[in-house]
């Protein structure tokens, strides 16, 4: 999980608890980064939306291709 201010720490901890239990394969850093972006741009929905997509795209690109594919 990324470093977060005290104001967001509790929210991130709650989400992490659920992630570890229900979605263990989800990357906790990706989850935390999305939440931080939404806190930072809480009043700018378009920016938050753009950053969310960027974060997911970046994460997907960083994943190794499964064996047997190019």
């Amino acid at each position: 999980m990324p470093e977060t201010g005290t104001e967001l720490a509790d929210l991130v901890a709650t989400v992490e608890e659920l992630r570890a239990r229900d979605y263990p394969d989800l990357d906790p850093d990706l989850v935390g980064d999305i939440l931080v972006a939404h806190q930072q741009f809480a009043e700018d929905r378009a920016e938050a939306r753009k950053r969310t997509e960027q974060l997911i795209n970046r994460w997907v690109s960083a994943q190794p291709a499964p064996e047997g594919t190019d």
Binding site: V15, L18, D22, Y23, L26, V31, V60
Partner: peptide
Amino acid sequence: DHTVELKDQVSQELKGLFGGAIDAY
């Protein structure tokens, strides 16, 4: 395509996680 399928899968899981987290939080 693998990346498209992965994006589909991870964003669906993120949706499920955040949806469930709202009530817990």
